[in-house]
Amino acid sequence: MSDTIRGAGLGLRMPHVAEILDHGADVPWFELLADNHLAAGGPISAQTDAVASRWPLTLHCVGMNIGGTDALDFDYLARIRSLAKRVEAAWISDHLCFTSCHGHNFHDLLPLPYTSEALAHVAARVQRIQDFFGQPLVVENISAYLRFRESNRSEAEFLSELVERTGCGLLLDVNNLYVNHVNHGEDIDAYLAALPLAAVREIHLAGYSRQDGYLLDTHDHPVHPPVWSLYARVVEAVPEVPTLIEWDNDLPAFSVLLDQARQADSVRLGGD
């Protein structure tokens, strides 16, 4: 685990950057949504460098198409690798999903079937990405709104086998785990029992929305009480794993995100 990424960090969002740079921020680390920081130059690039000079960073991606059957996009991966090197990112993460098909990018995290074929396919691609980056990739569980009949293992079992085959790290999104539990009735105890917790490098927390009896992973609310409870269970098992607050839509004042991060630290240290 990186020495510099500890405690509860925040996902850096562009509307907050000027405030953070002007006034500082009592945050141990930030995570960049890498796809928003790929500018070749100019103000975005300069702001990214300014943040990187003052805070440890990780990169979080949404475009590697880890589970896709299109060829890997090495132009995109090269831009990610270059950004990671420039900002000295502690690690790079992306999602267990596919994002493009036949050259069309959907810009959403689309679910995979958990089959032997998919596992072999994803493991080979993760290995190629890791070889290209020269470091382990960190792979995140997603909120899924579809599940496939042909899956013959759980997501946690799939991730466990992926770790075993590739040595990748895991990013455990506790909100996604809870959303899938509510939407699909998936067993959280079984999930946590099957997941290799020693491979978890990072935890994500976010808020969901409720719609017509199901939950949507919208990242537009504070973390909800049942997710805090689940988080408390997780950090009891992995207290040293850093946590990140994600908030993407209907972005509140930066101070609200700071409060969420402080609450995560409090829960991790055994408070409420």
Partner: peptide
């Protein structure tokens, strides 16, 4: 639909609609 496992609160039609809306909204 025949490819989907439906045991929870979201059926296949709703799930597909969520993704369709997401991918359009983001663009």
């Amino acid at each position: 639909l025949p490819l989907l496992w439906e045991a929870g609160r979201i059926n296949g039609t709703v799930g597909a609609r969520i993704y369709r809306n997401n991918t359009k909204a983001v663009r």
